[in-house]
Amino acid sequence: MATVAPESILKQLAELWVTMGKQGQEESGQGVLRACTMTLVVLAEESEDVSNLGETLAALMPEHPARAIVIRLRGTAERALSERVYAQCWMPFGQRRQICCEQVEIMASDAALADLPSVVLPLAVPDLPLILWCRSARVLARPEFRQLTEMATRTIVDSSGFADAKPALEWLTGMVASGLLVGDLAWTRLTRWREMLSQIFENRKNLERLAGPVRVVASDTGPLTTRALYFAAWIRNGLESLGAQVRVSILQAPSPSIELAGDGIAVRLERQGETLVATVDGASQCTNLPLPNDYLLLREELAIVRRDPVFEKTLASAPRLAYATE
């Protein structure tokens, strides 16, 4: 049975810095600069495109320099663990010194999942947050995963990877109820939409027109997605705090959109390519809205190492909406 020894990985990391320091001195006379603001543990299936994930991590490092521990899940029954250690470096524009972050890759079979917490814990950088990013929906329900989440400052998942929104919401609410900090990339995908909607209601005149009955229609490309449920639940929470009577519909449509129709106000947000078009009472305004990729989503999530009250409130009310829509 193959195993990994955290002490050995730490030694390899130390040796890596010595080697890179020497190389940097020889090549530029500047050495390398080590940067670290967190430990980022990534759980990914072995079948995932390794180069895509590598590119995402490389793009994240300049803004969120981290010791990245990528755990690749083999799914086999044989109890096996193996590892390799390397560095991710970049040269900031106009500078002579490389900035480097550490990366550790661990291959783990399903049978070895139970060994992961004892490997990850000593590898975590002391005194800095540990963020767990799980890209595999399959392992979320496993007890070994729960152990990892308890070590983490915050766990990030993507509920859009679940076949059904309801168990996803149940799992997430369970995590939050037990006091863990959780982020969901399905919610992150809504930030720019929500911000645009909020901007519209910065105008008090628009806000005043929401006091009566309001109909909300959230459309998404799939049937009853967590994203649509989140959006509808968040809007309903906001409207109810204004005293509005809200009726929500969730629909499947070719492109995502949200509509609010009240007494004397009609608002529609719709994605058109890389643009978000906001229409208020027939007048449209568009803003740049790149399609969110893993890098953009993680970039936002990694900046939040605390409780997210708006998400938690939305998450608490989304299941009610999911069952009501049934």
């Binding site: 930030t191 929500r194 909020s198 901007q199 209601f201 910065e202 806000l207 936002e300």
Partner: peptide, 20 residues
């Protein structure tokens, strides 16, 4: 009359910018 925008999310949104 509402005084606060209930759709604000200061943790994730940029600062509120009024029309002008």
């Amino acid at each position: 009359m509402p005084t606060e925008n209930p759709f604000q999310d200061p943790l994730r949104f940029e600062r509120r910018v009024p029309e002008c």
